[in-house]
Amino acid sequence: MNLRITLATTRRILTQLRHDHRTVGLLVGVPTVLMVLLRYVIEQPAIFDRLGPLLLGVFPFVVMFIVTSVGTLRERTGGTLERLMTMPLGKLDLLLGYALAFGLLAVVQVAVAATISMIWLGLDLAGPVGMLLLVAVLNALLGMALGLFASAFARTEFQAVQFMPAFILPQVLLCGLFVPREQMAPVLEQISVVLPLTYAVDAMVELTRTAEVTGTLARDMSVVAGCTLLALVLGAATLRRRTP
């Protein structure tokens, strides 16, 4: 691993985004628009206070999953990955380069959505705002790592996009966003225990409940970070220098 190459990769990805104004606009704008929509669909500030932060946790996860799985697939099919694999670039340089670029993007995305939610939409957050940003970035990195891993199993862009509903929607349904997990059938609750998004959303729930940094919050964040590392290691294993 080499810091110069990692940072060059981050800069390259951010430069690619700079040339693509529409993608940046969508990345930053869509979560904010959805928060506004949610606020006026619900009309009850108390419920918005409960659901708003959960969505702020889910958006960066979903968006980064899609962006990374399509982005990595492009590197694989466009031949740039093969070219990089013949150069002195470590797999970790590439993965961390992506993580850094998309982590930065997630900070901007959540900062904009959270600021508008709190100032304009009247979202009340019990916990510290800094923690909200931190959890959101962790969620974004989790989405990124899973997207990277999933892209190894996609041969076409069509398949990569289909992985979003396949990998993500079951986690969204089971994470406690729609129905509290305790009210689910025992089998489903058991499944939700091993899905990382459950902990990502649970961390956001903690932040809406109390101003303190609780043990549950710390546990949730460690689980999310651990799953991210695991997915990154698995993702690195799918990047092969030699291919058949």
């Binding site: 040339h19 466009g78 740039t80």
Partner: peptide, 28 residues
């Protein structure tokens, strides 16, 4: 070893100079 594949392996959403700057920093 310098290598160019049959299909041009460069980033289409970067300029010529930006592509070379990136691959150049990877190679040092």
């Amino acid at each position: 070893v310098g290598y160019a594949t049959q299909q041009p392996a460069v980033y289409t959403d970067l300029t010529v100079a930006e592509n070379l700057r990136y691959f150049g920093s990877v190679l040092g």
